[in-house]
Each structure stands twice: as C-alpha cells, then as structure tokens.
C-alpha cells in the first residue's frame, strides 16, 4: 500500500465517485428492474407481449399451419390449463433442481470470490480454472456427470450450479475489489485490522455486485436445469419438453417453455425485491442520482 499510495497533493480532487455502481458482468439487469414498479409501468411490456401473441394467433389461423408445426397461442393456453396437474408436478421437480443448484452456486461462488480476493497469488491460481470451467461446453460435461453421479438429482443440481456460479464469482470478486482504497486507509487510521476492513468495507461494497451476479445466475440456472434433464432424467420440464417433442405434442413443448420463462422471470423479480429490501441505501442512492440530484 505504502509506495504505490502516491498521495501527492492535488489528487484528492474529484469528490465522491457516485455514479460508479457495479458495472461489469451484467446483462442489462439494472435498467430493466425499474420496469416492474407500479402496475402502470408493466403496461407497455404487457401490450407488446399481447400484440405478439395476437399476431402469432392470426398468422397460424390465416395460413392454416398444422398444430404440430406451430401451435396457436390459444391451443398452448388450452394445453397449460388441461394438463395443469401434470405440468405442475414437473415444474416442481425442475424448480427444486434450480433452487438447490442456485444455493450450491451461491455458497461456492461467494467462497471462491473470497479466496480470489485474498491475494494476488490465489487469484492467479484459482481464477483461470474458474474461467476454464465456463469454456467447456456444458452439454459435453452433463453426460459425464450423469455417468459419474448416476440417474438421480445430483447431476442436474451440479449442472445448474456449474452454469450459475460463474456470474456470482466474477461479480463478487469485482465487488470486493471495488472498495475505495482511501476508505480502507481511513479505517486503518481508525485502528482497524485487515479482517475489520474486509468486514466493514469490502463486504458491504461487494453486495450490490453480488446481487447483479445473482440476477444473471437465476436466469441461466433454468437453462442449466433443462440441459441436465435432457441428458438423462425421467421427470422435470426439460424431460417433458424432449419427450413431448418426439411425440409431436408441440402444444406441450411450448407450454413447458412458457413455464420455464415464467420461472426465470419470477426468480429475477425475487432477486430484485431482495436487493431492494436488503440494500435500501444502494437502491435509493441510484434513484436520487438517476433523478439528477447530485
């Protein structure tokens, strides 16, 4: 810290850098969130979806497209209603895999991020493997996991965890590093040791980043569960989709897709709500700066 400190006069200019929130690995989550506040603000999104569905319905009807090629939205809706019991059963199976997988991803992701942030050496040792884990196609890994772990739930949970821990690690590492060095120095002058600096500054500073990571993770986790089920399973929405496809039950395939995307959206909204509840300072700060008050 000492020599690179470079506290030559005049570089204290610039004030508090308010605008810099977490900004790295993130797929437009922040901007999207405010869309879900107050029901009027839902309206444009609903209208667009309704418009697209109507167009779909109309194209199918006018061109007399056979239902196994492209079912009309109305018949997908009908299928959702008629087979609701069966669909719900499979939904629950997939949901369970997703939730357990996410829990594993969260714990291992935060732990890895913490290790990586501990020292340069650990970063150089661990980070490459973390990145490598994402370059191996999950569709190649999944059958191997099935062979190693058998036909149960484990391999699906691991596929979910494998696909969703990455955004959590990357974001949390960036978050732990985002703490202002001046603030960390200030804490040292207040008598803090390294562990206290970590707890009081680095951890809170990383939380908004962690939540960004979680929001990406929950959306990809659903994909992970489906891949896991495709490779080998006798239940779950992914399994149902692949079986229905081979039976030319296209309505049912689309019904599973609808449920899967609702699941992803729902998890995303829950993550956003948790963030607002747990980090009020962050959320309100963003609102004030967005309104141009600072």
């Amino acid at each position: 810290m000492a020599v690179e400190g470079e506290h030559l006069d005049g570089d204290h200019q610039g004030g508090l850098d308010e605008g810099r929130g977490p900004g790295r690995v993130r797929s437009g989550g922040r901007a999207g969130l405010d869309m879900f506040k107050g029901w009027q603000s839902w309206l444009p999104a609903l209208l667009i979806v309704a418009g697209m569905v109507s167009l779909w319905e109309w194209v199918v009807a006018v061109n007399d497209i056979p239902h196994w090629k492209l079912p009309a939205p109305s018949s997908i809706g009908g299928e959702l209603w008629q087979s609701r019991g069966m669909l719900l059963g499979h939904t629950w199976v997939t949901m369970e895999e997703v939730l357990i997988g996410l829990a594993v991803a969260l714990v291992s992701g935060v732990l890895l991020a913490w290790l990586i942030s501990l020292s340069r050496t650990l970063e150089r040792v661990i980070y490459p493997s973390v990145i490598a884990s994402q370059t191996i196609p999950i569709i190649v890994i999944a059958p191997l996991l099935l062979i190693w772990l058998g036909y149960g739930m484990q391999h699906k949970v691991i596929v979910v965890a494998l696909i969703s821990f990455f955004p959590i690690v990357v974001n949390t590492v960036d978050g732990l590093k985002s703490a202002d060095p001046d603030v960390m120095n200030l804490l040292r002058t207040l008598g803090a040791d390294r562990w206290q600096v970590f707890r009081k500054v680095q951890v809170p500073a990383s939380l908004p980043f962690l939540f960004s990571g979680i929001k990406i993770a929950v959306t990809v986790s659903v994909i992970g569960a489906v891949i896991g089920e495709w490779v080998g399973s006798s239940e779950g929405l992914g399994y149902l989709a692949i079986r229905s496809k081979s039976q030319f039950l296209s309505e049912r395939v689309y019904a599973t897709v609808v449920i899967l995307s609702l699941m992803g959206i729902g998890l995303f909204l829950i993550a956003g709500a948790l963030e607002r509840a747990l980090l009020p300072w962050y959320h309100n700060q963003r609102r004030t700066t967005a309104a141009g008050e600072d």
């Binding site: 200019q13 508090l16 202002d180 603030v183 804490l187 040292r188 980090l279």
Partner: peptide
C-alpha cells in the same frame, strides 16, 4: 495507526451506513 485521526477532502462516508452509524465507526472498531 489508530492513534491519529485523519480526514480528507473526500468525506469517505460509507454509503450503506446512516450518518450516526458512520460517525460511530471508529468507536465500533475499538
């Protein structure tokens, strides 16, 4: 370290702490 108070041009308040909780940071660390 810990014996000399230090204050910069930047207020360096922790954004996740209220004014009061920012103020007590040093005491808390002690």
């Amino acid at each position: 370290l810990g014996r000399v108070g230090y204050m910069l041009q930047k207020d360096l308040l922790l954004p996740w702490r209220t004014v009061l909780d920012n103020a007590i940071l040093g005491l808390e660390l002690k």
